[in-house]
């Protein structure tokens, strides 16, 4: 399998506090990779560094063989990296439709954009029902769908998702994970950050376990699901 994304000896600081310590991992083309770990482990920091929201002190990020560590964030979107951020971050003062349109900012073909919007509406019928509503008036689950739909609008090669199931009811969690599977079937690579380790490991191919800024374990998702230490720390329920 070809490596699509490679993170190499990444170190990231907030002021003097080191949040990420020498983190390295790879994501292969078409894989779903789960990055699990408890609150404060550094999952969000890792994703934000990959997409240019944070600057690493050292280390490299390689996408399709090219060093993109210093590429500005907006250019990465054009290159095919899409990020569904923690906390959804939809544009609350804009309509659902306008949010989706902004997701296609890097594209120019109007009719292709409209058909992408139709595709998002097929995956998330509720977004179509609410297309003229301000995003700020949506429920948490609907906002999560919008955030995912918006990220899909750039037709990404790889999608980074930061805790898409956070704060959602079990039914909605189910729905979100179905969509992630659908995205995978469509050929898009997924790097999934989750505290809901059980669910994440069920749909992932491989996984990395992050603990206080370092990767402490990695392996096939099915193996980690049965790993005693992982079960104890992250699947205790």
């Amino acid at each position: 399998m070809n490596t699509l994304l490679e993170v190499e000896n990444l170190n990231v600081y907030y002021g003097v506090i080191q949040a990420i310590k020498n983190v390295s991992f790879t994501v292969g083309e078409g894989e779903v990779i789960a990055l699990i770990g408890s609150n404060g482990a550094g999952k969000t920091t890792t994703l934000q560094t990959i997409t240019g929201m944070l600057t690493p002190a050292s280390g490299r990020i390689i996408f399709r063989g090219e060093d993109v560590t210093k590429v500005p964030g907006h250019k990465l979107v054009e290159m095919g990296i899409s990020h569904v951020p923690e906390g959804r971050r939809v544009f609350s003062q804009l309509s659902v439709y306008e949010n989706l349109k902004l997701g296609s900012f890097t594209r120019n073909n109007k009719s292709e954009i409209e058909s992408s919007i139709k595709r998002v509406y097929r995956s998330f019928p509720r977004l179509e029902e609410r297309k003229n509503q301000l995003a700020g008036t949506l429920s948490g689950g609907e906002q999560q769908m919008l955030a995912m739909g918006r990220a899909l609008m750039s037709v990404p090669i790889i999608m980074l998702m930061d805790e898409p199931s956070m704060g959602l009811s079990p039914i909605l969690v189910q729905e979100i994970f179905h969509i992630i599977e659908e995205i995978k079937r469509g050929g898009t690579t997924v790097l999934l950050v989750e505290q809901n380790a059980n669910k994440a490991l069920q749909i992932a191919d491989r996984a990395y376990v992050l603990e206080t800024g370092s990767i402490v374990k990695e392996g096939k998702a099915s193996e980690l699901l049965n790993d005693e230490a992982v079960r104890k720390a992250y699947l205790a329920s």
Partner: peptide, 13 residues
């Protein structure tokens, strides 16, 4: 509204 979210849409902030 949100500079980071705008950047993640591919907008040059």
């Amino acid at each position: 509204e949100d500079k980071d979210a705008a950047m993640l849409c591919g907008i040059n902030v």
